[in-house]
Amino acid sequence: MRFLINSRIILLNITVLFLLLACQKAEEIVIPETEIEIEIEPEPEPEPETDTILSEIKLKATGEGNTYELINSVFAPGYNVVETPDCSHESFGRHIDEVFDADLNKNVFRFYIHTTPDNDRCIKFDRQRNEIKTYDKSPDELKGVKNEKVVYSWKFKIGSNFKSSSSFTHIHQIKAVGGSEDSMPLITLTTRKGSPDNLELRYAETDSQITLKKTDLSPFKGQWVEVVETVIYGEKDTGTYKIELKDFKTSTLLFDYSNDNIRMWKTNADFMRPKWGIYRSLNDSSSLQDEQVLFADFNVKELKI
């Protein structure tokens, strides 16, 4: 009896299914189109190539008070790389000291220059010099030689009311030691009085100087500026030069120049070396005033070419 009931149920289900299929109209089945977003992960960008660092020397302010000693210990241990007007202005004391800077949140170097009585080391009296340098007593890592790639970097800040001479007011130089052209800087950053005052990049292939590029000085005033200067030392076929100056706070590019076909050497030079500070003419002293120029984070890096 149970088998008979199950058979009838199965037969009934088949009959219902048959009736439903018979009543169903043949319709085309349409699958609605849909946009399928497939998220493809971008290929990771290759990491930028970095040059091999052969040597790196850093000079940072410590605020401990022995500023000349600190500078000399890095740029020429046991010798003196500081060129100041102290001898003509002993009552003032040292013309380079260290001070805490709130913008950088660190100690920085402060370079003083006074319209009077400061001069150039009691040697020349038509100009004033307060600079630091590297020279023949410096470690080899601070001397630029042919076929060497060097990156100089530093920060500086001039006052919001900084005054320039119509002659020259240098804040950075690259000079030769030795040879017939070592009195003329190879590269100079100078400010110059004008309408408006300008920052100039000056260059001397031999013993005469030209302006490679200049720009309005106003954006530099009262701001920390970060400088990166890259040099391959050599004659014109191998020498290269690049410099970038940026507003340190905003990273805005204020000035740049690049040349991969430029003579970055001087005839019969022993080596090239940098200088930083303030070195200005007194030919237009009425345009000048006492100044404080701040510097920080000097770095000299030699890279493998």
Rank of each mutant, 00 (worst) to 15 (best):
I53D: 02
I53C: 03
L54I: 15
L54V: 15
L54M: 12
S55P: 01
S55L: 07
S55C: 01
S55K: 10
S55Q: 03
E56R: 14
I57G: 01
I57T: 13
K58S: 10
K58E: 04
K58N: 12
K58P: 00
K58V: 10
L59R: 05
K60G: 01
T62S: 04
E64P: 02
E64N: 14
G65H: 14
G65I: 14
N66A: 15
T67M: 03
T67V: 10
T67R: 02
T67F: 08
T67L: 01
Y68G: 05
L70I: 06
L70Y: 05
I71E: 07
I71S: 06
I71D: 09
I71Y: 12
I71A: 08
V74S: 04
F75D: 01
F75T: 07
A76S: 13
A76D: 01
P77Y: 09
N80C: 06
N80S: 12
N80K: 13
N80A: 08
N80D: 15
N80L: 10
V81N: 11
V81M: 15
V82T: 10
V82L: 08
V82A: 08
E83W: 05
E83R: 07
T84N: 03
T84K: 00
P85S: 13
P85R: 12
P85L: 04
D86M: 07
D86K: 12
D86A: 11
C87H: 06
C87G: 01
S88G: 07
S88I: 02
S91Q: 11
F92Y: 12
G93V: 10
G93M: 06
R94Q: 14
H95V: 09
H95I: 11
I96G: 04
I96T: 09
D97G: 03
E98N: 08
V99L: 10
V99Q: 12
F100H: 07
D101T: 07
A102S: 14
A102G: 03
L104V: 07
L104H: 04
K106V: 04
N107L: 00
N107R: 03
N107Y: 15
V108K: 01
V108R: 04
V108A: 04
F109Q: 01
F111L: 00
F111Q: 00
F111K: 00
F111V: 09
Y112G: 00
Y112I: 00
Y112Q: 00
I113L: 13
I113W: 15
I113T: 15
I113Q: 11
H114D: 08
H114K: 13
T115F: 04
T116E: 09
T116Q: 12
T116Y: 14
P117Y: 07
P117C: 10
D118W: 14
D118Y: 14
D118E: 09
D120E: 02
D120M: 06
R121M: 09
R121D: 02
C122H: 15
C122A: 09
